[in-house]
Design a protein around this nucleic acid. Structure first.
Lengths: 245, 245
DNA sequence: ATTAGTTAGACGCAATATGCATCTAAGTCA
DNA sequence: TGACTTAGATGCATATTGCGTCTAACTAAT
């Protein structure tokens, strides 16, 4: 680098360091629709608004470690599918100071959501939809259990837009769908997960064939219980040799 | 949060802030293989090693802005396809201090690489391959123009592993292939790009059909010049209504 | 001029994957 | 016992894909 280049690129403010946080998108499929865990903010800014759980990254922990720690601290969760989502670094995204947030998303079966909600105050589930004509980066629409729109703090709606798009993109070739189901599940439940994420109905026989031909499913020989009609066979996910996801 | 929770999660070291940098993966396809732009480090640590160009994020610029500024400063580049790749935040990834790096990747036609190499000293092109049985997160193998393995500074080989995998993943449904080609290109050139990224040969008639049926290609009516055989038709990319990518 | 060499681009066909209607199986419940 | 509901299988028409081969269009050598 020449001296000229050096002077040109030198900027004293470059040495101020931003704060770095991790925000968590804890997703599941509840009632055939994507749902996300939110916390109600107790402080300004955005006091009383709903927000994604998150916290600062400590100086001596990796980003992944921070994500897992916050999952434990904020939602009492462990042993989830966790994946880094995207890093949000617009200058004014937090009115207090410069904060860069690394978003992670975690997937869990709907059954496990109840435990998180019971363990802590101020948590809630919200339904998540992506507007049909949504361009890249468009925010998601969040609705409370009652159905009314929920304005989120900061750029968290945008983060959720990324999350649902990532989920859609990986649905066909990765195991994300299985991370949203219990260990044993029926083909119908698997199809429900796919339909909820893609936001459209799928053809039953075609879906069955595709899933079974892929070799990802192991029939257990057992059948679901409690159904008031013919019980479906239970399958397990076969995680064999899929280096990627 | 209860007082107990607060005390439990309180950590004085949490308030030390990490430094945040942007690292650039400037990729193209050169000679039917993926290539990446590297700079030779002038300072410790990893002095004389090859590394990705990068720099600190200023306190008053967004991550995207930082990526574009560094593209200009380090490689004299503008008007490229640029996309955030992944954020690397292992604790010891830089031996000097805690640095979290947001990797971006930028794609450009091979022809434009020459300008970058000429504009600045200490830049080089390196060929990039991903080992066949590479698991998620596995580093890429980097070779100099002469063909010998090139050890990279920091975790930059790992970053390149992510880059090539991202490229592969998006090849089929996004416009990344077109970002690697000049404005007008032949179907053969497009197929070369696909083959280089996927690391395997593709069937010509099938590839033609798939590309033409997709409606992304506009025939220009013109033909390539300079070939010592039948000249192929030149096509343009049709960027119409693809909200995503 | 003619011909050999090379790649572009079209064509045909078998194999595979997909969409969809319909049929039978296996439960519950009145 | 029969109505009802969903699971799961089957058959078939319709894309989609892989792949060998044929012709077209150009250069360069003879």
């Amino acid at each position: 680098m020449t001296e000229h280049d050096f002077l040109e690129s030198y900027d004293p403010s470059a040495f101020d360091r931003p704060s770095v946080t991790v925000d968590l998108v804890l997703m599941s499929i509840v009632g055939r629709a994507p749902a996300v865990l939110l916390t109600r903010r107790q402080e300004h800014p955005f006091i009383d608004h709903w927000a994604l759980p998150g916290g600062f990254v400590r100086i001596d922990e990796s980003l992944d470690d921070a994500a897992h720690r916050l999952l434990r601290e904020k939602a009492n969760m462990a042993d989830l599918y966790v994946e880094q989502l995207y890093t949000f670094g617009a200058v004014g995204r937090d009115p207090r100071m410069r904060i860069i947030s690394v978003a992670y998303f975690a997937l869990l079966p709907a059954e496990r959501f109840a435990a998180a909600l019971a363990a802590r105050e101020g948590l809630a589930l919200a339904a998540l939809t992506l507007p049909d004509k949504a361009a890249t980066g468009a925010p998601a629409e969040i609705r409370s259990a009652a159905g009314e729109p929920l304005p989120l703090a900061f750029d968290h709606a945008e983060i959720l837009g990324h999350a649902i798009r990532r989920l859609r993109g990986k649905l066909d070739y990765s195991r994300v769908a299985f991370a949203l189901l219990p260990e044993r599940f029926t083909l119908r439940a698997l199809q429900d997960v796919h339909e909820a994420i893609r936001g459209e109905q799928l053809n039953k026989p075609a879906f069955r064939r595709r899933m079974l031909d892929r070799g990802w499913l192991i029939p257990t020989g057992e059948r679901e219980t409690g159904a008031s009609f013919r019980p479906a066979e239970l399958y397990r996910f076969n995680p064999s040799d899929k280096g990627d996801m």
